[in-house]
Simulated assay, not measured.
Amino acid sequence: MSKRDYYEVLGVSKGADEREIKKAYKRMAMKYHPDRNKDDADAADKFKEATEAYEVLTDAQKRAAYDQFGHDAVNGQHGGHGGFGGGADFSDIFGDVFGDIFGGGRGRQQRSARGSDLRYNMELTLEEAVRGVTKEIKVPTLVGCDVCDGSGAKPGTQAKTCPTCHGHGQVQMRQGFFTVQQPCPHCRGKGKIISDPCTTCHGEGRYQKTKTLSVKIPAGVDTGDRIRLSGEGEAGEAGAPAGDLYVQMHVREHEIFVRDGNNLFCEVPISYTAAALGGEVEVPTLDGRVKLKIPAETQTGRMFRLKGKGVRSARNGQLGDLVCKVYIETPVNLTEEQKELLRQLEDSCGGSAAKKHRPKSEGFFDGVKRFFDDLTR
């Protein structure tokens, strides 16, 4: 009797990844498992067929051979169960697929857990972010107990192998012809029993403490950047490696500058006279004040770029610019004499001279007039 295509058996495409194959097999195993279909011989055959397909398609070497040569690559003529010198034990396969439900695969021993990673949010001023700074931070975390060296046992004593699970951390339960494992209830999955616990950490091998760390922030960091401090997270269980500490940067808003990547932007007020006649104004930079030359007839919104006065990137070392946007500040609190002078200036710039002195204004109002003329036609 010819065998069905393994992909067809599991109902997956030939491009399916291992996660899809595992999901499909889990669905079929739950449906056709012999313990759930004791009087259905057809279900047992389908269960066996699905298990065989799963065994081949989740093994990279077997799958590659199957894709190229079909069932000839995995049939009995190549030896053992399927051309590769014997098949996997079914309880291993079932434990692998359903391990997340029943507590792990066959023969798996409990491993001490690595410590958790931690995150610390650090606020910086723009000046600190641009120039770099060293800061001390306080981090509440779990640290390894230095009294018992993380073992959890009182000094001079030691933990004993759990007599229930014999150090495996798991116990087996037989259900039909397959084995399900679960954490050992006696040692809570640790594999060891501490009869005389350390009085400092109470048998946990670690305890809560606030650590003080010195963190060097490199020049040029920005909001969203982070620094990893290896091994400065929570201590692991029973001497397992500690996690890492991630220091997340947040740069506060500045009263003068706005940062965009490596560039800085600021708005600079200039006088009515400087805009019309030209002149120089002092503008701030992160390195001090510099002179900015304003050409005559400068309009509000004009941009001036000061090369190399921005931020040096922490990633590639590139130096940004400072971009200054000028706006004309209207005079306030004028005396009667000053107002009269402005009226004289306005009169001298109006009439036939308006197009010469105020080309944008004249052009705008000419356009407005044409717009309304078109509406009334």
Rank of each mutant, 00 (worst) to 15 (best):
Q299R: 11
S313M: 08
P284A: 07
S230E: 13
E234L: 00
H250S: 11
F265K: 06
E234A: 07
G220V: 01
G236K: 00
I194R: 11
E297D: 12
E282C: 08
R206K: 15
A238W: 10
G189C: 11
I227R: 05
N262D: 14
Y272S: 07
S313A: 10
V215C: 07
S271I: 03
G224L: 10
C324L: 14
F304R: 09
G243T: 04
T199M: 12
S214Q: 14
A219G: 10
P218A: 08
T223H: 12
V311Y: 05
I227A: 03
R228H: 07
G231N: 01
V323R: 12
I194Q: 04
R289F: 09
E255A: 08
V215N: 08
P218Q: 06
T273M: 10
Q208F: 13
Y207P: 05
A276K: 11
P295N: 05
A274L: 07
T285E: 02
D222G: 15
R252D: 13
R259K: 14
C201P: 06
S195D: 15
C201Y: 04
H250R: 11
P197K: 06
G301W: 05
V323G: 02
I294C: 04
P269N: 05
G261F: 11
V281S: 00
K211T: 08
P241N: 02
I194K: 08
G310I: 01
F265T: 08
A242K: 03
V247R: 05
P218I: 01
N263Q: 12
K209I: 08
S230D: 09
K325W: 00
A296S: 13
E232F: 01
V281N: 04
P284N: 08
G320P: 04
G310C: 03
G279A: 09
K325C: 13
L292V: 04
I256L: 12
